[in-house]
């Protein structure tokens, strides 16, 4: 048989025809197709459209023109945007630690097993989360009223004059109070469910080693719910940057204290609906989205680092 070998056979064997191996099976696409279509339509398309919008400028005089990255340049120099970002950052630095700290305390208290009426407390602390943010803000808005609200009633009854929670100086704290009230229960539930899955054997071992309750909390419970803490922090960071409902509703009660650029989201809203600057509004939204992503990512990286 070797005699039949041609000179060509001496060279490297030619690769088998590719046709068969590379023929795709489209079955997989069939399965993810519906998801892909919905995903593209409801997630990717709006983002793509915003990006598209951000490259134009529509003016009352001169019409719609392509301006490249001018809008982005303008955002970077926009004092109104940066001051609103500063405001929500301050809010983030103060309100989130307070809220998460309280939620953690409550979760630990519930989990300690020494609380009488545990289920009642769990439900009642969670309840505010079930109240829609709009309703909650309206309710607090009434309480904050210095003339006919709760603050006003306290002033009348005790003959004192409490400062107006809706004055420009106290407003951010007043909003922080509403948000804390709304979300303690939600975060508490995340922490509590994480605490419930800690194996009991660890507690028994700790007891044998003679560890006190405080030591159990710091050495077992907190490390064990680290993941939940990070998740809750990321949610809160995003929530703070997206602050909108509360200031938007309180604006009716305190229009001079809550400016149209009070928070980045309120700013994009006013740009879009009062100023008719949809293009610039889209740009601000994109920049804000990027900043939120970066900060949330940093929180996640730091939070997940072992032994940090």
């Amino acid at each position: 048989m070797t005699t039949q070998a041609t000179p060509a056979a001496a060279g490297p064997r030619p690769a088998p025809p590719p046709a068969r191996r590379n023929r795709r099976s489209w079955t997989g696409w069939g399965f993810i197709g519906p998801f892909g279509a919905v995903f593209a339509l409801v997630f990717m398309a709006p983002i793509a459209y915003s990006l598209y919008l951000s490259l134009f400028r529509d003016r009352m005089i001169g019409g719609n023109t392509f301006v490249g990255l001018d809008n982005f340049e303008k955002v970077l120099q926009d004092d109104a945007f940066w001051s609103s970002l500063g405001r929500v950052s301050l809010f983030l630095c103060v309100q989130v630690p307070v809220m998460l700290g309280l939620a953690l305390l409550v979760a630990l208290a519930l989990d300690s097993g020494r609380l009488y009426g545990r289920d009642f407390f769990r439900i009642s602390i969670f309840l505010p989360y079930a109240v829609p943010a709009v309703v909650a803000t309206l309710m607090w808005g009434f309480m904050y009223g210095t003339r006919f609200g709760l603050v006003g009633d306290i002033n009348d009854a005790l003959g004192v004059s409490l400062p107006d929670p809706l004055s420009p100086d106290l407003l951010l704290a007043a909003i922080g109070n509403i948000v804390t009230w709304e979300f303690i229960g939600y975060n508490m539930l995340i922490f509590y469910s994480a605490l419930r899955v800690i194996p009991h054997s660890l507690y028994e071992a700790a007891e044998i080693d003679g560890a006190g309750q405080f030591r159990v909390v710091t050495a077992i419970k907190l490390p064990a719910i680290r993941g939940a803490l990070v998740i809750a922090t990321i949610f809160s960071v995003i929530g703070s940057f997206q602050l909108f409902n509360e200031p938007s509703i309180l604006q009716n009660l305190a229009p001079n204290a809550i400016t149209s650029d009070y928070t980045p989201n309120l700013y994009t809203y006013s740009l879009s609906f009062n100023a008719q600057q949809h293009n610039y509004s889209a740009t601000v939204a994109i920049v804000m989205g990027l900043i939120t992503m970066v900060i949330a990512y940093v929180v996640q990286l730091r939070g997940m680092r072992k032994g940090a």
Binding site: G36, L41, M44, A48, Y49
Partner: peptide, 15 residues
């Protein structure tokens, strides 16, 4: 590329 195409189509439809 597929996602890009879908986006472009969606964009064209809205525009």
């Amino acid at each position: 590329r597929g996602i890009g195409l879908v986006c472009a189509l969606a964009l064209a439809a809205t525009a």
